[in-house]
Computed example of a mutant assay.
Amino acid sequence: MGEIWQVFEHAVTITVFVFVAMMVVDYFNVLSEGRLSSLIRGGVWRQYFISSFLGATPGCFGAFLNVSFYVHGLLSFGAMIGGMVATSGDESFVMLALFPKKALLLFGTLFVLGIVFAWISDKIAALLKIKSCQECNLQIVHTSPLDQSLSEQVLVQNFLRISWKRTVLLLGGIIFLIGLTTGIIGPPTWNWEKITLTVLTTIGIAIVGSVSRHHLQEHIWAHIVKRHLWRVFLWSFFAILIVGIGLKYWDLEAFVKAHMVWVMLIAVVIAIIPESGPHLIFVMMFAQGLIPFSVLLASSIVQDGHGMLPLLSYTVRDSVLIKAFNFIFGLAVGLILYVLGV
């Protein structure tokens, strides 16, 4: 029972970190969205840089922006591939929680590879006469009036007519913050992880309390809570549990090391799934030292969390082509680095 509680506590801590980080990223993405649309217009190298940068930012929001730019004809086929190469989905938040330094190294590597593979993909697309976004319809990029969130009128209305959703989120955040600071949950000592969680949780409470009702409903509740939060918790819980059971009752480490190429192949195949979650098992395995960086990188190149889902609704053809390119790139890079001992 104690082991299950530890797994549960670890999963809750990761989930809260992911939730708050997603809120912060979403907050600034909405604020900067209009500027990005005008900034991205230009040459292909600007497209490669911006799409890869957006992809490398934690979460799926950068990927969603890339899809929006792509269907508006602002990104080339290669730039879209580069953005998806750089995208790690919601797992990026988990990686930041588990191994921040290596996670930043991974994001930086994906960013550079995104630019390189964007250029290569456009060259290949030109040779194969692949035309991008043939089935896409222009979509309106949704924005939210965040500039009004901190006005005195909005703040007063938020608490005079407080909704049950805001109440639940505020109480949940406050309870977690109390548990965190008193040592009931999270790291027992005041290390960087505890300090970071405390600061982020405080920021999260401030965001929940200050944003407009629209932003709370559409961005935080309807999107982050209902679509992401429970998935992050369940995948984190079972990934930690499975890896823990494998280490304790089955010689998982010996099996993985004896079949590393197969593990890499399985990782990139699973990464094809346009869903945040399955990739977490390999994140946890890397955190436990069971797989090398090359396997994690290969999986990260191919997988893009929910980032591909909006594009699937516009064009299945382009989505399949992008996944095919990323699969080849991911497997090639992973195998080369593995042979080199990375």
Rank of each mutant, 00 (worst) to 15 (best):
I266N: 01
I81F: 00
I130K: 08
P310H: 05
G78W: 02
H259A: 02
R46M: 06
S32F: 09
K102Q: 15
V44L: 10
A97R: 06
G78Y: 03
G172D: 05
F293L: 10
S68A: 11
F107Q: 06
W45P: 05
Q148T: 09
I40C: 04
G341I: 13
I207Q: 07
F111T: 01
T189E: 15
L340G: 14
F77Q: 05
Q148M: 11
L127Y: 13
C133P: 00
V116D: 00
T15S: 15
G114E: 01
K123R: 05
V268Q: 06
Q47A: 09
A21I: 04
G172T: 07
L171I: 15
L128T: 14
T167Q: 07
V283D: 00
L160N: 12
W250L: 14
F28T: 12
K131H: 05
P188M: 07
R213Y: 03
T189H: 14
R161E: 14
F61W: 09
L138M: 13
S276P: 00
I40F: 03
S212L: 01
N29L: 14
L169Y: 08
I50A: 01
T198M: 06
A324H: 07
L39F: 15
I240H: 09
V199W: 00
G59L: 01
M284K: 08
S276W: 03
I184T: 12
P58T: 11
G186S: 09
G183S: 10
R46Q: 08
G209I: 11
D90Y: 03
Y27F: 14
H306E: 04
G334A: 09
W230N: 09
L36E: 03
I40Q: 02
S144G: 06
L331V: 10
V30Y: 12
I4R: 07
A206E: 08
I322N: 02
I120P: 06
P58R: 01
N66D: 14
V71E: 05
F107G: 01
W119M: 12
Y249V: 11
G82V: 00
G89F: 00
N29M: 15
L197K: 01
G277K: 02
V7R: 02
V261D: 13
L104F: 08
S92G: 11
